[in-house]
Amino acid sequence: MTTLTLAKALNEGLRRSMEDDSKVLVMGEDVGKLGGVFRVTDGLQKDFGEDRVIDTPLAESGIIGTAIGLALRGYRPVCEIQFDGFVFPAADQLITQLAKMPLRSLGKVRLPVVVRIPFGGGIGAVEHHSESPEAYFTHTAGLRVVACSNPADAYTMIQDAVRCDDPIIFFEPKRRYWDKAEVDLMAAGVPLDRARVVRQGSDVTLLAYGPMVKTCIEAAGAAEQEGRSLEVIDLRSLSPLDMDVVAGSVERTGRCVVVHEAPVFTGFGAELAARISERCFYHLESPVLRVGGFSTPYPPSRLEDHYLPDLDRVLDAVDRAFTY
């Protein structure tokens, strides 16, 4: 076991992927010499060379498009989008080409492209640097969308993503980059498309992914002192969605609260709430409740603590789940 930050775990995972397969490339803005704004690609260019760790111009559409062209015959590019809010210039390539080409060719063309996106707030940055755009991509058929929440998962999930033959949007919880944990560098980890129960409980199911997993674990700890037992599920994969783990939990607890940083309105939680009501209707003691950001642009950094869901807002929703 080794103690790693989440950023370093990703770095180690990428390094191992590059060692295992010479077709793996890393490309993006400032990923080479600088090692990325969050140092996730630190040292990779030095060790693997400028041909495999490519510093690109500021051109998100060009980066993703080039990656598609490289992937058409054998390369496995890992693209970094520097901040969540910078992904939109690449939307055309992601939605119209990357997601659709494999489907249109009936799977004859595989595009093993990983698009890494640091997402979410909590680091005192501004809008365009603190957003949670996951629902745009889960809405797009043909893309896998995953989010890691801790160093051990980050290490295995990035390697699994690189090995996967499908295009993947890989969300990294920006404010958890510096969280440390023990990582088993030899472990295989939970499969990429599986959710994981990270804390068992019996009264309410908390569903989260990325940065909110830690918030939910803390909320469950606080609730325990008040005599409530909360189960916390880290979804890990948003698309495809592991509904068996979700439904298995909600059918036991009868109550569910979904937590994400993205705005509640038509956020990913809306899909979860709808699916749970469809599948677990007769087990539910209360409606599925959602905790998330507000329908505003991401606020100035001094206000972000008011915007982001925290322990109190999660526990408030848990309380409300018992009022029905």
């Binding site: 498009g65 990656a67 598609i68 119209t96």
Partner: peptide
């Protein structure tokens, strides 16, 4: 929207250029 061997078409204007750029980089190397 045709895909056959090394022939790819798409209807959205301009979006094939970055992909062609990637294919050209691939060819330059291999």
């Amino acid at each position: 929207h045709i895909l056959r061997d090394r022939y790819v078409s798409t209807g959205v204007q301009g979006e094939s250029l970055p992909v062609a750029t990637g294919a050209a980089l691939h060819l330059k190397r291999t």
